[in-house]
Simulated assay, not measured.
Amino acid sequence: MPYEWTPTPPHQDRRWQLSLWPYRSLLRKDFVLFIGGTAALVSLPLLTLLGQAVLWGLLPFFGMMLAGVWYALHVSYRRGEVLEELTVDEARAYLARHNPKGDVQEWEANRYWVTAHLHPKGGPVENYITLRGGDREVEIGAFLDAEERLVLFDELQVALRAGREPVTPNGL
């Protein structure tokens, strides 16, 4: 899953942090291999045109195609450079969303009043999760897929509830 609890599991401690990021199917190290493989596969038909004038007419389009694929992947990576960090301690819950352009959106509320809400339908995505506390409601994990959001919602419920329930010695 593209998120991580610190410490693991969160319900055993009153202080914890949750970091979320979008899933990456093509890693940066595989980017070069993908572009190279694409160039090799597309250039195979061009080998039949070696020594002919038409090859020079097709090469600019070949270059534009490779540049377009590279640019599209680069834009996809830039848009996916999102990091959400939810930090909860004894008194407060703090959510920071680091956006691709470098700006940071922040939200803070009293930990006791923070609740997680699941919106199965009607949100921008299926199984939309929001955190409500104070005077605002904020989204969390909208870039996760629907099943991951369901699992995350259950884990958030347990983690947030642990802060409101009294801690007893030896878990009794």
Rank of each mutant, 00 (worst) to 15 (best):
G171Y: 08
E155Y: 13
T38C: 13
L66H: 02
V167I: 12
L41R: 11
Y77T: 07
W56K: 13
V125S: 01
E147N: 01
E4D: 04
M65G: 12
L20H: 07
D103S: 14
A116N: 03
V88L: 04
D89V: 03
T48R: 00
H11Y: 00
G37M: 14
D89N: 13
L59S: 00
G122R: 03
L73D: 03
L66P: 00
W16V: 05
T8R: 10
M1L: 00
R97C: 03
F31T: 01
T87P: 06
E165R: 15
Y3P: 14
E137K: 10
L20V: 00
D135Y: 04
W107T: 00
T8F: 06
L20Q: 01
L59M: 08
E137F: 01
A91V: 08
G134C: 09
S19N: 06
A91R: 07
E85K: 07
Q17L: 05
N99V: 14
L83D: 11
N170L: 15
P7D: 02
G141F: 04
A146E: 15
P9F: 01
T6H: 07
Y23H: 03
Y128M: 04
L131G: 13
L83G: 12
V138I: 08
E147A: 08
G63T: 08
S76M: 01
L144N: 11
L131R: 13
V138R: 07
L33W: 05
R149P: 13
N127L: 01
A159C: 05
L41F: 14
L83H: 11
P169E: 14
P120C: 00
V167F: 14
S76I: 07
G68E: 04
V125T: 06
Y128Q: 10
Y3F: 11
A39C: 04
H119A: 12
L172C: 15
R78Y: 04
R28N: 12
E90Q: 08
L55K: 00
V75F: 04
W21R: 04
N127F: 05
Y77S: 15
L152Q: 13
G36S: 14
L66S: 06
I129C: 05
W107G: 10
T130R: 07
L83E: 15
E139F: 03
L47D: 12
N110D: 14
E90H: 12
R132Y: 00
G80S: 06
